[in-house]
Design a protein around this nucleic acid. Structure first.
Length: 326
DNA sequence: GGCCAGGTTCGCT
DNA sequence: AGCGAACATGGC
C-alpha cells in the first residue's frame, strides 16, 4: 500500500518563471489554505514542499524564492530515487500547476479596475495566482470530503485520508505524504473510510470514483482538453458530484478561468456582503450577479476565499464609494 | 443539546 | 419541478 522509503536520495534542481505579477508568498500560502500545512502541502519559512507521485515514483519538491513578490524566479529542488529527465519534466509540469505558475491574473485585474469591490481585492492580494491540485482525481476526492461540512471538519478528514492512504517518503527524518492513489483508495472498504470520519454516503462516492479511476473506465485527466460545459456534464454524471463540486473542480483542477460554485454557502455569504445585503443571497441571485465578473469568476472566487481564509474580512465589506484606484 | 457547516442524493408530492 | 430528510463531525 503506502511504502516507506528512505536511504540515499538524489537531487535535481531547476528554476521556474511565473507569469507576472506573481506573489510567491501569497500563492504558496493559499495552496496550504493559509494553515502552513494542509494535507500533502506545506509552506514554512519561505519553503513550499510537496511530495509528488509521478507514475509511481515519489519525489519531494521544495520550492523557494529569493524575491517573494513582483516577478520572482523560483528555485525548485527535487529529491527522489534517481529522478531521470523524463520524470523531472513531469514533476515540473505538476509544480507548475500546483503553484499556478503559467497563468497570471493580469486580464482579471484589467476587468477589476471597473468594479470597486474587485479592485480592492486585486490591490490587497496583488500577485495571487490560482494554485491547482496535482491531479483531477485529487481535486475530486478533496471536494467530496469537503461537501456540506465545516472547513475544520474537512481539514481533519482530508489530512486523515492522506496520512492513512497516501504513499510516503522519508527525507531528512521527516515523513511526507503524496495524495492517495486511486487503487489505494479503491482497495479500502466503506468501514475503513468511515473510521476516519467519512459518512457512509461519502465513503460510497469515494470508493465508486476510485474504483472507476483505478480500473481505467474513468479518465479524469482526459477531461482537461474539454470545454467547460462538457467537463461539468461528465463530472456531474458521477454519483456524489453535483454542481458545486463540478464548478469547484473547474477552478481547482482544470485551470478554467470562469468557474463559479454558485451554491457554495460561504460564497453566498460573501457575495451577499459585497452586494450590501448583510446576509447570504440565494444561488440564483449570486449566479445572476456574478455574470458581471465573467469570464474571470474563478479569480473572483479564489480572491474571495483568500480574503476570508487569511482573515481579511475588511475586503468583504460592501463598497460604498466608487473611484478607487489600483 | 440543537443547529449549522465551503452538498448531494433519494423519496416523496 | 420542487421540497424535506439523512448524513458524520466539531464548534458555538
Amino acid at each position: 500500500m503506502s511504502e516507506a522509503m528512505s536511504g540515499p536520495l538524489s537531487r535535481l534542481s531547476f528554476s521556474l518563471n511565473p507569469v507576472p505579477p506573481y506573489d510567491f508568498n501569497l500563492t504558496a500560502a493559499y495552496a496550504t489554505y493559509f494553515r502552513s500545512r494542509y494535507g500533502t502541502d506545506s509552506y514554512e519559512n519561505g519553503v513550499f514542499r510537496r511530495l509528488l507521485d509521478i507514475d509511481g515514483d515519489l519525489l519531494l519538491a521544495e520550492v523557494s524564492s529569493s524575491d517573494a513578490t513582483g516577478s520572482p524566479r523560483l528555485e525548485a529542488n527535487l529529491s527522489g530515487q534517481n529522478p531521470d529527465t523524463a520524470i523531472a519534466g513531469k514533476a515540473k509540469g505538476q509544480i507548475t500547476r500546483i503553484l499556478g505558475i503559467d497563468r497570471g491574473p493580469g486580464p482579471f485585474y484589467t476587468m477589476a479596475l471597473a468594479d470597486p469591490a474587485l479592485a480592492r481585492l486585486a490591490r490587497a492580494l496583488y500577485g495571487l495566482h490560482i494554485p491547482q491540485t496535482g491531479s483531477v482525481f485529487e481535486a475530486l476526492v478533496l471536494a467530496i470530503l469537503g461537501q456540506q461540512i465545516s472547513a475544520q471538519v474537512a481539514f481533519k478528514l482530508r489530512n486523515s485520508l492522506i496520512e492513512k492512504y497516501g504513499p510516503r517518503l522519508i527525507a531528512d527524518g521527516k515523513i511526507y505524504h503524496a495524495f492517495p492513489r486511486p487503487d489505494s483508495l479503491a482497495a479500502t472498504r466503506p468501514d475503513d473510510l468511515r473510521a476516519i470520519g467519512l459518512s457512509a454516503r461519502k465513503a460510497e462516492y469515494v470508493l465508486d470514483i476510485a474504483g472507476k479511476a483505478a480500473a481505467g473506465v474513468l479518465d479524469l485527466e482526459g477531461l482537461r482538453d474539454r470545454p467547460g460545459a462538457e467537463i461539468i456534464a461528465s463530472l456531474t454524471s458521477l454519483r456524489g458530484v453535483g454542481g458545486w463540486t463540478a464548478h469547484w473542480l473547474l477552478i481547482r483542477a482544470f485551470g478554467y478561468p470562469d468557474g463559479f460554485p454558485a451554491s457554495d454557502l460561504a460564497l453566498l455569504r460573501m457575495v451577499g456582503n459585497l452586494m450590501g445585503k448583510g446576509k447570504p443571497v440565494k444561488p440564483e441571485e449570486a449566479d445572476e450577479y456574478s455574470k458581471r465578473w465573467s469570464p474571470f469568476r474563478s479569480y473572483v472566487t479564489t480572491y474571495l476565499f483568500a480574503a476570508v481564509r487569511s482573515g481579511r474580512a475588511e475586503l468583504l465589506e460592501p463598497v460604498k464609494e466608487s473611484g478607487q484606484h489600483m
